[in-house]
Every structure is written in C-alpha cells, then in structure tokens.
C-alpha cells in the first residue's frame, strides 16, 4: 500500500480546506458487502470473487465484529482451513473510522496503519460504510478538479478587473481582524486566539483583559471546530474594549439554555479524548465576557457576540 503524499498539517490552504470539508461519509461506499460470523471462509471467498472485492466485514446484529481480507483467504487456502467459519480466522483487531470525521483523518489512517480499507461506523457504532484508498483518491481528484476550476475562474475575474491596490490603514490603536475556522481542524485551532492575544498586547491592553479575551476567543473558536460546519472569528478592538464575534454556518443549537449549562455537551468520544467537549466552553466564554449574547437557529447557524472591556486605560 502506497501512502498518500498529502500533508494533513502544513499543506496548501486549498487542499487543507478540502480534506477538512469532505467527510468520511462523503467518500465511503455505503453499500457494504458483509458476511455473518458463521459463514465459511469459502463463502466469503466466493463473494470476493463474484463481486471483485478484497475485504469483507463480518457483522453480527448490525455490529462489526471482524474483517476477512484477501490475505486471510490466501492463508486459509494455503493452510487448508478454507471451510472454517469466518469468526475463527478473521482479523479482530480493527481500526475503524467514524462517518463524521473529516477526510484528513482517513488519509492519516491510511498512511499510519497501512491497511487497504477501513470500516466506517456511525455515532451509535453501527457499520454504515467502508472506505478504500481508491475511494479516497477518487473523491480527492473530483474535489481538487472543482477547486482548481474555481481558482481559475477567480484568477480570470481578477485579471479582467485589474489588480486593486491594497488599502493602507493609518496608524491606530484599534484593529480589526477575522479568521476562518473549519470543522474538526484541531491542527489549526487556536491560531485566531493567539493572533488576538498578540494584537491586544501590541496595543497595550492590560494582561487580565488579554487573558479574558483569549479565553472567550479560544472557547468560541473550539466550539466552531468541534460543533459547527465551519465559521469565522471576527475581532474588533477599540481603545477601551475588544469585541469578539463568532459566526458559523450551522447546524445551529437546538437548546440554547442547555448549551449554556455547565457540563452539558453533545461532543463525541474522540473529541472528548482530546480534552474538549466537557460542556465548559460556552459557560467559560460567558463568564469571561463583560457582554455576551448568543443567537442560534437550527439549520442556519450560530452567532456569538462577546465584549471584553479593558480594566486599565493607557
């Protein structure tokens, strides 16, 4: 198995956006050929031959219990146990993907584990698909083609319009910045907040206010990374306060009151394993703000507006 020559951390921005925007469920095959644990390896082999596949997940009552690969079949033919039941010879140590993970995870898994296919489970750990390296390549090529087309169009438009001069703002204590965020992009999460902190230091805000602003910004940024379909963080500083606006494009929060309750969380297991998703984010952000307002609509998105006033004026 060759590896994917894609840098999931520091690659080109366009490619990064693409592999975080695409989900495992966008590239997987959802019609999975499976076999029960009681099927003989011979039966599995016949399935493989007839359907031209190289791996069959073994499923019992909707749950994935193992996988039989073409390697297992070759060994069975070689060793003379091709009539044995699948569950006596299948691989049981399984690495799986979750359907909601970004494609970047799939690429990392292929590169790290060297398997040729990964079963895909949903939130409730039911088998919902299978991903092969060919599926990933196909999806990537289609998406990259679209992306290149879009870039070329943009380029042509800019040429036609003639290059616009960059506006040069005069020296001022205030600043205004914005940063995009992407779902599950834990690699780049926190960068917007780091920039905000730097900029606030630059204009001489007091350290207590900088800390509060950093907490508000980081929690809202992580919320976008963990829960939203991507969004934007906007910072506007005056010489007395900084406004932090976090806008995302969905899915929206169904129960705002619950979301603001400490300990309430809808984060999944692997987000929690990173030390996030404990239901502290929004309450933390609110507590650190002087003004805090959240509006959300399911299907449309969430906007949080927070204000942090500096404690001492310089």
């Amino acid at each position: 198995m060759t590896s994917f020559p894609i840098d999931t951390d520091g690659g080109p921005q366009v490619v990064l956006e693409l592999i975080y925007r695409l989900k495992v469920k966008d590239v997987m095959k959802s019609e999975v050929v499976t076999a029960p644990p009681t099927a003989s390896l011979r039966e599995v082999q016949v399935k493989m031959r007839d359907l031209g596949i190289t791996g069959v997940p073994i499923v019992e009552a909707g749950r994935l219990v193992g996988i039989v690969s073409i390697g297992n079949i070759i060994e069975a033919l070689d060793g003379g146990w091709i009539e044995d039941a699948a569950d006596s010879r299948m691989s049981r140590s399984l690495i799986v993907l979750e359907d909601d993970m970004p494609l970047s995870f799939a690429i990392t898994y292929f590169n790290r584990y060297g398997y040729r296919r990964f079963p895909v489970l949903d939130k409730n750990t039911r088998l919902v698909g299978i991903v092969t390296a060919a599926d990933v390549l196909r999806a990537l090529l289609i998406a990259m083609n679209q992306e290149v087309e879009r870039l070329e169009e943009g380029l042509a438009k800019r040429r036609a319009a003639g290059a616009l001069p960059e506006p040069s703002p005069g020296p001022s204590k205030a600043f205004s910045m914005s940063f995009p965020s992407r779902r599950f992009d834990f690699e780049n999460a926190g960068k917007a907040s780091a920039e905000l902190k730097k900029a606030l230091k630059g204009i001489g805000a007091d350290s207590g206010s900088i800390r509060r602003a950093a907490i508000v910004s980081y929690e809202l940024e992580m919320n976008q990374v963990i829960h939203s379909d991507g969004g934007v963080m906007e910072f506007t500083a005056s010489d007395s306060a900084v406004s932090i606006v976090a806008k995302d494009e969905g899915p929206g929060i169904a129960d705002l009151e619950a979301a603001l309750t400490e300990g309430y969380s809808t984060a999944n297991e692997w987000v929690r394993s990173l030390g996030f998703g404990a239901g502290l984010g929004l309450p933390n952000a609110k507590r650190s703000s002087d003004e805090f307002e959240i509006t959300s609509r399911v299907g449309t998105g969430t906007t949080v507006r927070a204000l942090v006033r500096y404690q001492e004026h310089k």
Binding site: F186, E187, A189, G190, K191, S193, A194, K197, R211, A214, I215, Y218, L274, G275, F276
Partner: peptide, 17 residues
Amino acid sequence: ITIQAHKNTIAVASLIG
C-alpha cells in the same frame, strides 16, 4: 500537570501563560 499530550494543549498553555 496532565495527560493531554497534543498540540492543542500548547495552544491553551500559551493563551493563559
């Protein structure tokens, strides 16, 4: 003092000193 050995821990640490 933690077991969270990943990049995001550095981001948090940096933000709050």
